[in-house]
Design a protein around this nucleic acid. Structure first.
Length: 705
DNA sequence: CTAGGGTTAG
């Protein structure tokens, strides 16, 4: 044996020589051909080696030696030569179970799941009985394909073959049900296990962690810690996911300490899970620091960081990382693209949106329905419902999420009629609406003043078997409230089947602010202050309501309340994109290099507005300023600065696109309407909640926002 | 030669 090995170490330095000699050695030195070719195959690193060996096998009449051919298929598969392996398999006269296992393993290795199932089925037709090594591949393939019916047939076959007590296979079945049979079925299998290994525990825990039951996952983890089985790093990855989903930073940190304590902190994939935990819980700095320490070429690590940035409002950093990834030749996958498109949506820059769309179009993901959905959402959020529609039209096999994204997009832009038309088209296409479809529809109606239509949609939900959620109720309150039916909205809330939450009371308060209904507004605000005490938006809304009816002592009271809770009003800013570059302006901002020109333009606008008879509604909108600032700030609101800058830096007639971090104020809204007319420009403003398209002196929101 | 994990659209 040692002689054979020594021989083969030379073999690939002089492959031609060794191949020509091999027959001689086998025949005359009595070397066992099976060991000989096994060693030779194990040294093979490329297809040409395999071909040479294959030729030798034919020459020496060994091409029907099952042991060698099994090994051959195994090695070919490892070298990613699945097609070649298949060819050799097909040439074998009557393959028996080892050969079948080898070829099935090869497909399994590269996630060619359909092929795994197909070969398993062919094996049955060839009346070859599977053994205990066949089933794990097949079960895994069924799990990956979500093919629970086939999986059950496989399970039946396992019983027929007498493997029902095989612990390995039981864990495989458990994993199958975790992936596609639901947690209850998986639980039955888990409870039936006599010996629960770390793999069994991890499977069931991950099942709950992945199917939206993190609390149950953690409960079973506690149970596990009471058993003899010690969790390993893969178990902890699942637990980290449970904590991330619960956004339980405290427990997540405790687990981080545990990881360090048991010496697993340098396990790369566990560190990735930790990065993801911090990113998801809003601890972007902590995540970035872990990320920087690793910075390995692992797409999941980069995805975790990119999506973390995107979710926590660091759209620019998310996109920066995306570009860095490309420049480092780390291949983005579908998840990377989704997160980056999401970041582009948050950024609000149409220029960036187009460039992202362009990237997708030139990539292998251009027909990925998930990504198309994200693109539709992105264009809608970046102000172009038309481009969103274009992507929508080009999307093949539109599912309910695609349709819903487009409906929500129309809603965002106050195009209620288009949303309704699309809904009818969707029904004609036999796509069943879901809960989000109705949120989109009701919101679209609400933003367009289509009260009856919106109400009918809400009522029709039960016909589709959809239970209205908190969000649906909030949309209806918004629908009724915006149209002035405040009492109806309040009665509607009282009749809700569960406790109204922040979104419901928030909708009512906004409506009360529009219609200056103090009593109801105070009531809603009171609820909000206890449910969501740290959100400054609610305080500002109530303060605005008081100001609109000249209740200055109320304004003062809110200010004191905010101070006592240590809150400051969010500073307003507006961004505008010029030549693909986003620039931000704050109230009274003088830092811009062209600020002289900008202020000149602002003053010019101010004078034109006065000529036009623009009257400042001074009480309702200047809540956040001291009286002496009022006059000054009229022309300094950040939105006005952005418009002025847009006017001096673009050609006449160019659409201006502005993004604000707060709601549009009454004065700015009124002024922007007039400005759109007097400079003959379309001005698109994205505020905190929706889009306003200003054109010819009117706004798409119909003055409801 | 076999079973468990991390990123994920409206």
């Amino acid at each position: 044996m040692s002689f054979t090995i020594a021989l083969h170490q030379r073999a690939f330095k002089f492959p031609a020589l060794i191949f020509s000699c091999s027959f001689h050695y086998i025949r005359h030195k009595s070397i066992d051909p099976e060991s000989f070719y096994t060693s030779l195959l194990e040294k093979s690193t490329q297809k040409t080696h395999l071909k040479q060996i294959h030729n030798q096998l034919y020459t020496h009449g060994l091409h029907e030696n099952g042991f060698i051919i099994t090994k051959f298929i195994h090695v070919s598969s490892n070298l990613k030569e699945t097609e070649y392996a298949r060819q050799v398999f097909d040439e074998f006269p009557k393959p028996y179970v080892f050969l079948w296992n080898a070829i099935i393993r090869g497909y399994s290795l590269y996630n060619m799941l359909d092929e795994v199932v197909e070969m398993y089925s062919r094996m049955q037709h060839a009346f070859v009985a599977p053994d205990a090594f066949t089933f794990p591949y097949v079960l895994k393939a069924c799990g990956g394909l979500m093919a629970v019916r086939i999986g059950q047939a496989v399970q039946a076959q396992i019983l027929r073959c007498g493997f029902e007590d095989d612990e390995f296979l039981r864990n495989g079945i458990l994993s199958l049900y975790v992936k596609c049979g639901g947690n209850n079925r998986a639980r039955v299998v888990f409870d039936g296990l006599r010996n629960k290994s770390v793999v069994s525990w991890t499977s069931i825990i991950s099942g709950y962690a992945q199917n939206g039951q993190p609390i149950e996952a953690l409960r079973i983890f506690r149970e596990m810690r009471g058993s003899d089985t010690k969790p390993d790093w893969i178990t902890l990855v699942s637990i980290l996911k449970a904590y991330s989903d619960l956004e339980d930073l405290e427990q997540g940190r405790c687990l981080h300490s545990l990881v360090i304590k048991i010496g697993l902190e340098y396990e790369p994939d566990l560190r990735i899970a930790l990065t993801s935990l911090y990113a998801k819980c809003g601890q972007v700095m902590a995540a970035k620091s872990l990320f920087d320490q690793m910075k390995i070429q692992n797409v999941i690590l980069w995805n975790a960081m990119i999506s973390g940035y995107a979710k926590n409002g660091y759209a620019d950093k998310a996109l920066e990382l995306f570009h860095e990834m490309i420049s480092r030749n780390i291949k983005p996958d579908a998840v990377t693209i989704q997160s980056s498109v999401l970041a582009s949506a948050h950024l609000g820059s149409l220029h960036q949106a187009k460039s992202m769309d362009n990237y997708v179009n030139n990539s292998e993901f251009k027909n990925d329905v998930y990504i198309s959905t994200a693109l539709i959402d992105m264009y809608a959020k970046c102000g172009s419902v038309d481009l969103a529609r274009k992507v929508f039209n080009q999307t093949l096999d539109k599912d309910v999420v695609v349709w819903s994204a487009m409906i929500v997009g129309y809603g965002l832009h106050g195009q209620g009629r288009e949303a309704i038309n699309l809904f009818h088209e969707m029904k004609d296409a036999k796509i069943r609406p879901n809960d989000v479809t109705f949120i989109g529809l009701i919101t679209a109606c609400s933003h367009s003043g289509l009260v009856d239509e919106g109400w009918d949609f809400f009522k029709s939900m039960k016909d589709y078997g959809i239970e209205p959620s908190q969000q649906h109720y909030a949309s209806v309150v918004d629908l009724l409230g915006r149209a002035g039916y405040l009492e109806n909205a309040y009665n509607f809330i009282k009749a809700m089947p569960f406790e109204p939450g922040v979104s419901v009371w928030g909708s009512l308060l906004s409506a009360c602010k529009i219609y200056r209904h103090v009593i109801l507004g105070e009531y809603a605000a009171d609820k909000l202050f206890s449910l969501d005490p740290l959100n400054t938006g609610h305080y500002v809304q109530l303060s605005n309501l008081y100001a609109s009816v000249h209740m200055w002592e109320g304004v003062g009271k809110v200010r004191v309340l905010m101070q006592s809770r240590g809150l400051n009003k969010d500073l307003g800013y507006s961004m505008i994109e010029i030549n693909g570059k986003l620039e931000a302006f704050r109230i009274g901002d003088k830092s811009h290099s062209r600020f002289n020109e900008i202020y000149e333009k602002v003053e010019w606008l101010e004078n034109r507005l006065l000529e036009y008879g623009f009257v400042v509604d001074s009480e309702s909108s200047l809540h956040d300023l001291d009286k002496e600032d009022k006059k000054m700030s009229l022309c300094n609101h950040s939105e006005r600065l952005a418009i002025a800058y847009g006017l001096i830096s673009t050609d006449p007639g160019t659409t201006l696109r502005i993004t604000k971090n707060l709601r549009a104020c009454v004065n700015c809204h009124l002024a922007t309407k007039l400005i759109s007319k007097l400079v003959n420009r379309e001005i698109v403003v994205r505020d905190l909640n929706r889009f306003h398209h200003f054109k010819d002196g009117i706004c798409s929101c119909g003055d409801y926002w």
